[in-house]
């Protein structure tokens, strides 16, 4: 069937709500408004205000309430409008959700799912556009997912809800209108492994989320230029499935990491370090990174575009590691 990323996310919520009475959705404007990005549009009518809960603008309170409800037998899905707003709930996410199981000696798992929008590309400027999923991927106790395809938008939520521990799902805002074919019986997917989205033999492009389509576009351009790029979608940012990208790098001997986060102290840095630790002698060229410029993401379109990884910059980096600078 023809669908969109947004609709696939909505179907995933609907499916989870139907499967399990303990599941409910809460967040700012998820009900009457239909969700800031219209993901939950129509769910209030189907499930009622007890299970599709509009909250006050109190990120710390409602994320923490999700933690408490999860501790007490429910399976909440908490929606945060954007990753920048999640910083108002960072105390709850780090100090409680990610920590309670360990600090209680294994007594209190937190089966909570938090969904939030991430990323730039819609001229929303510096307080609605950042890619901070790498920060969250730093934290032991969390699972961090980044669906980049319709299948993953549809399929990651249910296994996330089945995970006894907190799971963060990052939905890139440029993907909500992504449309395409999704199998009628599409359902839960594996949330532990990275995926090879395009096989290739000359260089490995390692990316996730909103940058996947850009890396695939770059791979097409590279193909026209005689370079056969493999594209890996990390899918799970924590725990990282390093085996999949290390296996690829050992075959292609070259790696470019594409990450919309900032370069310094980032997820891309972690991946480059893993490659250096595990596969240095398999490399024929230094690892390259294509990241966002280290600026708060600007409003003006030309500046925003210049700040982000783009197919051309990805292809240039790949070309350089294959052919030399």
């Amino acid at each position: 069937m023809k669908t969109t990323y947004r609709e696939a996310l909505r179907e995933a919520i609907r499916d989870a709500m139907n499967r399990d009475d303990r599941v409910f959705l809460m967040g700012e404007d998820v009900g009457s408004y239909g969700g800031c990005y219209a993901v939950s549009l129509g769910l209030l009518e189907d499930f009622g205000p007890e299970r599709i809960r509009d909250t006050p603008l109190s990120e710390s309170a409602f994320v923490g309430a999700g933690i408490g409800a999860a501790l007490n037998g429910m399976r909440p899905i908490v929606e945060i409008m954007t990753v920048n707003f999640s910083l108002l709930a960072l105390d709850q996410i780090l100090n409680n959700a990610a920590t309670l199981l360990h600090m209680s000696g294994g007594q209190f798992p937190v089966p909570l799912v938090i969904r939030m929008t991430t990323g730039a590309g819609r001229q929303l400027a510096a307080q609605h556009s950042h890619s901070l999923e790498g920060w969250y991927a730093h934290i032991p106790g969390l699972r961090v997912l980044a669906p980049a395809t319709l299948e993953d938008a549809r399929g990651m939520l249910w296994p996330a809800l089945c995970d006894p521990d907190p799971v963060l799902i990052f939905e890139h805002n440029a993907l909500y209108n992504l449309s395409g074919e999704l199998a009628d019986d599409a359902g839960p997917v594996d949330i532990t492994r990275a995926a090879v989205r395009r096989p290739g033999k000359d260089v490995t492009l390692i990316t996730y989320g909103g940058s996947l389509a850009k890396a695939l576009a770059a791979a097409d351009d590279l193909a026209a230029d005689g370079i056969d790029a493999e594209v890996i979608d990390l899918r799970t940012l924590r725990p990282l499935d390093a085996d999949t990208f290390l296996e690829s790098v050992r075959r292609t001997h070259r790696a470019v990491v594409v990450d919309e986060g900032w370069r310094s102290g980032s997820l891309s840095a972690e991946i480059a370090a893993r490659i250096a630790e595990e596969a240095l002698y398999d490399l024929d060229a230094p690892v390259r990174r294509v990241c966002s410029a280290e600026v708060p993401i600007p409003y003006a379109q030309h500046l925003e575009e210049a700040a982000l990884p783009q197919p051309a910059s990805i292809a240039a980096a790949a070309s350089e590691v294959v052919r030399g600078g």
Binding site: V63, G64, A65, G68, A70, L71, N72, M74
Partner: peptide, 9 residues
């Protein structure tokens, strides 16, 4: 916040 969530459940 955690107490509020426990109560919500």
């Amino acid at each position: 916040p955690v107490a509020a969530g426990l109560a919500l459940a």
